[in-house]
Write a protein that binds this DNA or RNA. Structure first.
Lengths: 254, 254
DNA sequence: TGAATAGTGTCTATAAGACAATATCCC
DNA sequence: GGGATATTGTCTTATAGACACTATTCA
């Protein structure tokens, strides 16, 4: 790696940004690479799952990485994340939200890479539809060892329960996605992104419990969600269940 | 601007990130510039205030911009934000938190700039201490035209109440900082960052009201904050007030 | 003593949790 | 009818808001 040429140092508060920017020649000095990484989350069998791709080259060869890619000069950040989902998982029209930008100088041993991480939410059916490369990718189960929004690293396990070693700082990014999703569940309608268009209140509760990692009170969950006014009864009920069928609801778009 | 050389296109999901990254030569194609912008917030006279610097060159000449600067190859993002605060405002040891990364291709007309915005919190005394350039900078009062966490643009006004035109998308960044601060106030101890080391419960309430833009119930604010266990009585009281002096508290670090 | 704000106690309204009772489906 | 879960209603408990009352300082 060559010695980076630096922008001129500011000597103190008397030099303002505009002068600084003006003196800047885009070709003048070394810049970081900018990438996006996508944490694709879906609930399944009582746990959150995510898509990981196996690295076949150094560094972190053999480890598992979040889908990601370089940001092009003519696309926005979220646009880049949507493209990554399309190219690497065959998914379109997915809920996407920026998470956090990681930019420690040593997070990638090859060169300086600043990565803008994103969270993508789908229901389990769409995750199953994702076109992923055989052997080189896995839908991993996420084990969260902390409660509430404490945050921290999480473990990713393959379908046989083996812990998957993660590349770079992707364990932190995964943990952050879970933390953020837990935080958003209470006051924003993200829970609906994790379910198909129509669902019962109990299914919605199960998804909330999966995300939060704890049991919820059925009565108050029901009251609280109906009180939000975000739900709309479809008028239909479950079919072919061996008990009283529950009413189906959809997310009210208005 | 030259036509950007692009990284090779991924043809589909079967090409994973590791192969993509491996084929990447850091000198191979054009990359965005990466900067940090800092929204420095402090409460004063019932409103939030922030530091803005006047741009003396095109683009956005004459408009007001957040303090910012390029990220160096050997420093982290938050580190860069701390440096900007030090160089442009003479402030050290300030609470800093990443906000959001803006990267629309056309947000700066000169070249592609991805900016990682940060929020910095100080009390009004420290904001007054900030060493800013005469004429080229201003501590602007922020007027928030929306309630709660609705979000949106905000207006910045100079001490005489004149609206300050903002550079680039800095109005959005400012609005996002206010929204984020409102959201954090309830469940995290950020309120203390906006006050000197010792304060009365009523002063803390006033700061909360300033941030939230609405009046709070005195009784329940008192109960709620004392119940958090984050406060510690200093044993001292206010001096030289023409009414019963209030007990002083400090933020309990533990 | 009076003005002003600090701090305490109590009542009420609201929301969450617990739990019982009834409803509706399949077998 | 029996088994299972859905849905409704009621009771209890925790918390926020309202408000009255007492406390402490300075002028």
């Amino acid at each position: 790696m060559t010695t980076p040429k630096r922008p001129p140092l500011n000597s103190g508060p008397e030099i303002d940004e505009s002068a600084f920017l003006q003196s800047y020649d885009p070709g003048d000095f070394e810049r970081p690479s900018v990438t996006v990484d996508v944490v694709l989350l879906a609930p399944s069998e009582g746990a959150l799952h995510t898509l990981l791709l196996k690295r076949t080259e150094h560094p972190s060869r053999g480890r598992w990485a979040l889908p990601g890619g370089f940001v092009r000069m003519d696309e926005g950040l979220e646009e880049a994340a949507a493209r990554v989902l399309r190219e690497k998982a065959g998914l379109r029209g997915v809920f996407l939200e920026q998470l956090f930008t990681f930019g420690e100088p040593d997070r990638d041993p090859r060169t300086r890479i600043v990565t803008v991480s994103h969270m993508a939410l789908v229901d389990r059916e769409r995750l199953a539809e994702a076109e992923v490369a055989e052997g080189a990718s896995v839908v991993a189960r996420i084990d969260v060892p902390w409660l509430g929004e404490a945050g921290g690293e999480v473990e990713a396990k393959d379908p046989k329960g083996r812990v998957l070693p993660l590349a770079f700082d992707h364990g932190s990014i995964l943990g952050l996605a879970v933390k953020r999703l837990r935080g958003k569940l209470d006051y924003s309608p993200v829970g609906f992104e994790l379910l198909p268009g129509e669902f019962t209140l109990f299914e919605l509760q199960k998804v909330h419990e999966t995300v939060l990692g704890r049991k919820l009170n059925k009565d108050s969950f029901r009251r609280r969600l109906l009180a939000t006014g975000l739900l709309e009864a479809t008028g239909e009920s479950q079919q072919d269940v061996d008990h009283r069928p529950a009413a189906l609801y959809r997310f009210k778009r208005s």
